[in-house]
């Protein structure tokens, strides 16, 4: 485990040097929240109105939280890097290194993700308070549960991204798959809670990864209840195992293929 800590710290330190980049990049994140604040401001005629059971305040917080979680991971770059390593055969160099490739990918990206997450949480909460004037009331224990669900959702998201990158073992280019994945997240999870969709689609969203990466953790923040919290965390643990399993499987399959080809 110590070696992963070292990888993580090295990545954290090197990314601290590019703080300016992260600050400028966050402008896009701020603008998204800014736009959605205005959209919901326009749609909700009076502040007490409920749409599909959500108040205006809850809707703005919903988008803020899903954006924080999604934007903390530089998904496109992560997929592209893995995809390139697989295609160029560089991944073969990692086979005889004393760590797991999936572990390496996760920990080397987590450093950057940590910085961005801390930064985005500060901006996100700041924006929310400026726009809405208040923050949902949560107890400390509830806050800890919510934080755990956010962290789990980010890790699951990263594992799925790793899996998509590793798909390059069996398909020529896995970037279109990333595109599909991020689009689905955006349309069915980040912008609207699942209550906004036709009843026929809702069960599909509930069992999809979108539930654990976007809807669940955001809903917990705006409307906490213990029953739902347990469901979300359990679902996240299940998806954590599924995504991890998928990565391992794909990597093993890919390594076999490398051996056949002689590396």
């Amino acid at each position: 485990m110590r070696k992963y800590t070292v990888i993580y710290m090295a990545n954290l330190m090197s990314n601290l040097q590019y703080m300016a980049n992260i600050i400028i990049n966050s402008l896009g994140f701020i603008v998204h929240i800014f736009i959605f604040f205005h959209v919901w401001n326009y749609i909700y005629e009076n502040p007490a109105e409920l749409i599909y059971g959500f108040s205006k305040t809850q809707m703005v917080w919903y988008v803020t939280i899903t954006e924080i979680i999604f934007c903390s991971v530089a998904g496109r770059r992560m997929v592209r890097t893995i995809c390139n390593e697989v295609r160029s055969g560089n991944v073969a160099y990692n086979i005889n290194k004393p760590y797991s490739y999936v572990g390496y990918i996760m920990f080397s990206n987590l450093g950057e993700v940590t910085i961005r997450l801390v930064f985005y949480v500060m901006i996100g909460l700041g924006l929310g308070i400026t726009f809405l004037g208040s923050i949902p009331t949560i107890t400390i224990i509830e806050g800890i549960v919510i934080a755990i669900s956010w962290i789990l959702s980010i890790i699951i998201n990263m594992l799925f991204l790793t899996f998509i990158g590793l798909l390059a073992f069996i398909m020529e280019d896995s970037n279109p798959m990333y595109w599909l994945y991020s689009k689905m997240q955006l349309i069915f999870g980040i912008v609207f809670p699942l209550e906004f969709f036709p009843t026929a689609i809702q069960p599909i969203i509930k069992i999809s990864p979108i539930f654990v990466t976007s809807y669940g953790p955001a809903k917990l923040f705006i409307d906490f209840n213990w029953r739902f919290a347990i469901i979300v965390i359990l679902a996240q643990i299940a998806y954590l195992l599924i995504s991890l399993g998928l990565c391992k499987l794909m990597y093993m399959k890919g390594v076999k293929k490398l051996n056949v080809n002689g590396g």
């Binding site: 400028i24 990049n25 402008l27 896009g28 603008v31 998204h32 736009i35 205005h38 959209v39 401001n41 326009y42």
Partner: peptide
């Protein structure tokens, strides 16, 4: 890059929602 991104972001929402 960020500046160019801003041009896209705003272009796809009706101006009436901004005041």
């Amino acid at each position: 890059d960020t500046g160019n991104g801003l041009m896209t972001n705003f272009a796809t929402y009706p101006d009436g929602i901004f005041k």
